Amino acid sequence: MKITKGTKIGVTSMDDTKIWSNGLYQNAYHLANILSAAGYDCDMITESKEISENKFLEKEIVLLTDDNLGDYDIIFEVVHTLRDSTVPKFKAKGGIVAGIQYGNEFMIDVMADSIYRPEKPPRVNKQDRDAVLMSPHFDFSQQAISIMYDLDVKVCPYIWSPKFLVMHEKEEELRFDPEKEMKSIAVMESNLYFVKTCHIPMLAIEHVYRENPELFEYAYIVGSKILEPSKGFIRFANLLNVKKDKKMFFEPRYRFPFLIKRGYSDVIVSHQHYNALNYLQLEAMYLGKPFVHNSHYFKDNGYYYHDFNAKDAAAQIKNAFENHKNVFEEKMEKDREKVYEYHPDNPKNIEGYAELVEWLLEKRAKENKKSKLFIQGKQKGSAKAKKPRRKLL
């Protein structure tokens, strides 16, 4: 598509010292590459001097200052928002500020935090921004966010690449091995909010254990250490025979490659609620790993169960253990085709972001024209008011 040449864009970013701590950091890197591939002049930027002294892989991170603020036409807030004092300065120079929601802002920051974490500082008010972009799996909140911030909200492409997954590991060492005995289950939800928790997977594992106790040896509930202080969670876990029989273990968060190489994740079981696109799904699909999930985006991939149906999830766990070795090549080929839909190099994603950039530029041009006409109208009205009246004879 035709783009506005010479458009300079900044993407707020983090350095590469914490690549695995938050998916937003990878998002910012991929977005900068996509915008560059589309033909725009794009920088990863920050207002932190400390961050700017590092890089994100091969990319410099530009320190945003009053001196270079006017160089940018658009700033996308991805990893962090701009300082309160920066936004009016940038907009006064004709700049466009758009927030990008790669995280589940409405369910987490608006609903959950207001109820469960009332002491947490409120999110930045985006009403002084120009627009909000959001990942497609959050489009259920599109109208709500639009009303809340009184802004136009558009859906942007979801992006993921295996680059970071295999950056420090040999891909063949991570890929599913049909010669290896399958004996473990891993649940890898963050358990930070109710949108991604281990409860349904634990119940599914319990049901499998009751019906087929010999099917697996161990189940690792990764990321559950954070729940140890919860008496409610302990009471819930103590209901399960698989836990009583010391077949289920509760672990802190680990990187996916770490778990694979240690044999802790022969079958992966996931559950999400209003958070249907996640890196874990795409990582598992890319590597040909048996992945039991409830994401409607991947109904034809992995081992799908609907919603909160724990018994259906259990049936899919059994299916994965018994049949995946026979079908993994066919499944992996199909899964990788699906994964490419979200790849930063996919022309559809590059064009999708280019269309959003051009929409923002056109939106600003229309607003400027409307503002100019309004000012001209006021000036004409003022001139007419000062014109002396003709005397009547």
Rank of each mutant, 00 (worst) to 15 (best):
F250R: 10
R235H: 13
N278G: 07
L240I: 06
L239S: 11
E228S: 13
V242F: 06
Y264I: 00
K246C: 03
R262G: 06
K244R: 15
V222N: 07
I260F: 06
N294L: 02
R262Q: 09
Q272C: 12
Y218D: 14
I260M: 08
P213D: 14
L282V: 02
F258M: 08
H296M: 06
F291T: 00
Y264E: 01
L277I: 14
G232D: 15
E211H: 06
N238G: 12
N212E: 15
I234K: 15
E217V: 02
Y264D: 02
F291Q: 12
N212G: 01
K225D: 15
K247T: 09
P229Q: 13
V222K: 04
K289W: 08
I221T: 03
I221D: 12
K243L: 02
Y220F: 15
F256R: 08
Y220R: 00
M285D: 11
L280Y: 01
A284W: 04
E211N: 12
S295Q: 06
V242W: 09
G223V: 02
N241G: 11
Q281Y: 15
N294H: 05
G288S: 04
A237D: 08
F249V: 01
Y220E: 03
N278L: 09
H296A: 05
F249D: 05
F258S: 13
S295A: 10
R235S: 14
S224V: 02
V242A: 14
H271G: 05
S265M: 09
E217C: 02
L240S: 04
K247N: 10
V269K: 08
Y254C: 04
A237S: 10
L282I: 00
F250L: 10
V269A: 12
Q272D: 09
E211D: 13
Q272F: 09
R262M: 05
G288P: 02
E251P: 00
L282G: 08
E283D: 08
E214G: 06
V222W: 06
Y274E: 14
S270Y: 01
I234F: 03
Y279W: 04
V222C: 10
K261Q: 13
R262I: 00
L227W: 06
Q281I: 06
G288T: 01
K231T: 08
F291M: 11
F250I: 03
N278V: 10
K289I: 03
V222T: 04
E251V: 00
E217F: 08
Y274T: 08
D266R: 05
E228R: 13
F258P: 00
R253N: 12
G232T: 13
P290W: 05
K244W: 02
M248K: 07
G223W: 11
S224A: 13
S270T: 01
I234A: 14
D245C: 09
Y264F: 05
K244M: 11
L239R: 15
P229Y: 09
S224E: 12
K261R: 14
F256G: 00
Y264N: 04
P257V: 02
E283R: 04
S265D: 07
K261E: 13
Y218C: 09
M248D: 05
F216N: 10
F233A: 07
F236M: 12
L280S: 08
N275Y: 09
A284K: 03
L280T: 05
N238V: 03
S230Q: 10
F250D: 09
S265R: 03
S224G: 09
I268S: 06
F236K: 12
